[in-house]
Design a protein around this nucleic acid. Structure first.
Lengths: 218, 218
DNA sequence: ATATATATTTAGATTAATCTAAATATATAT
DNA sequence: ATATATATTTAGATTAATCTAAATATATAT
């Protein structure tokens, strides 16, 4: 049996280490989980004992194949629930994360299979992140940051890098959602701000914004 | 903050003590929760300290008004999730309880409000038990046990007393569901078995069955 | 009314997850 | 290459929830 806390550590290692394959430091985990480094050391030993993680003292941790499987399953559950909350229960995209953090730990194979079917097998969550399928496969989308798009390019908004509620509220306020079409009008070399056209309106976005919004070239 | 374990104890006291108003014994709780009496004593002291329960040594426990509110809210969540699982995710009525036991602990006011609306404000769960509304009010239905119905009475099946998966599977097998119409044909005085007519077919049910199925006189 | 059985509580230990403070590796600066 | 700073681990304590075994109340039988 795997505890809720273990699941959360596995998830953190997975996210910090780019799907858990890169070694991550004790301190990085402590920061992510909002605990002390000493607590992380203890837990990481436990994960290693249970064969969910590879760990060498002072050298950091990565996930084993088994650990990755668990992590991917949690991510799958998290993102499916996010779709459910946004599409069926009218949650706005800045509200879904917190509740999905809880729902992702519910244990029932059938529940997730049926939820997946009920939602018509979505491939992406409301932030544009891919949803792993039942066997753990993840569909990659070729997305780039808005800041990397060329002048004149027509793009479709497909995701966010930062999913803090502040950023998501900013996007809502400016009528930017997943699927929104936009065109790069000009780029200001001085501060790297970008002028874009959305729904026939022009909008200037700062480089901070442009570095946190993923788009796909149309 | 209330812990998951505290919530489960409160729920047990609520169910054992007929909505938590009757005093229940330490041993009864231990049996229900599958723990030892000594663990119950400890927890019950804690619930009393937190003002969720009234407790006098050796005299048993009941819930305070605050404890009852918490219990009713858990019951509300549990039953709403049961409706969701049965209606939207094709769970059969013997499978829903176990998953709802987990889902009932998810903390989010908005989630439950929206779920309630999404399900069109159901008043009863798939076992026929009433769902408390947002303010905690519970709609009572005037139901009787099948064993108490008179010969010749036409009834509608409205709930079950025992909701073990064995019993629910028995009902499924015999095409008895909530809303099923039936008529009492005869009662056998010797073993209290009852002959009923369902969908033009006759069926003999034992007194055990008749004592666990709730009906409403049509 | 007293002895006996049953229920409940207390004392002290255990496990998972956490912490603080001290000890020890590793990384960085000169 | 050595001193210093930073990161990590260890030792020992704490909290919530649990347990076993012993102690103590309460209920029951005669």
């Amino acid at each position: 049996m795997i505890t809720l806390t273990e699941e959360n550590y596995i998830k953190a290692i997975y996210h910090l280490g780019k799907q858990g394959s890169i070694t991550v430091s004790t301190n990085a985990i402590a920061k992510e989980m909002d605990t002390k480094a000493s607590s992380v050391t203890d837990m990481v030993k436990k994960l290693s004992d249970k064969n969910y993680a590879d760990y060498k003292k002072y050298q950091g941790v990565s996930l084993t194949e088994e650990g990755k499987k668990i992590a991917i399953n949690i991510v799958r559950k998290h993102r499916l629930w996010e779709v459910f909350l946004a599409e069926k229960l009218n949650f706005s995209w800045d509200e879904i994360h917190e509740v999905a953090e809880q729902l992702e730990h519910i244990k029932s194979e059938k529940l997730i299979q049926q939820l997946d079917a009920f939602l018509k097998y979505p491939t992406h969550d409301p932030h544009g992140d891919p949803i792993p399928d039942e066997s753990g496969r993840i569909k990659k989308i070729d997305k780039i940051l808005l800041s990397q798009a060329q002048i004149g390019a027509r793009c479709i908004c497909v995701g966010v890098k930062d999913s803090s509620s502040e950023f998501l509220k900013y996007l809502d306020k400016n009528n930017i959602a997943l699927g929104t079409n936009l065109k790069i009008i000009s780029k200001e070399p001085f501060d790297h701000s970008i002028a874009i056209k959305i729904n026939a309106k022009e909008l200037i976005v700062s480089s901070t914004i442009a570095n946190n919004l993923f788009v796909k070239i149309a």
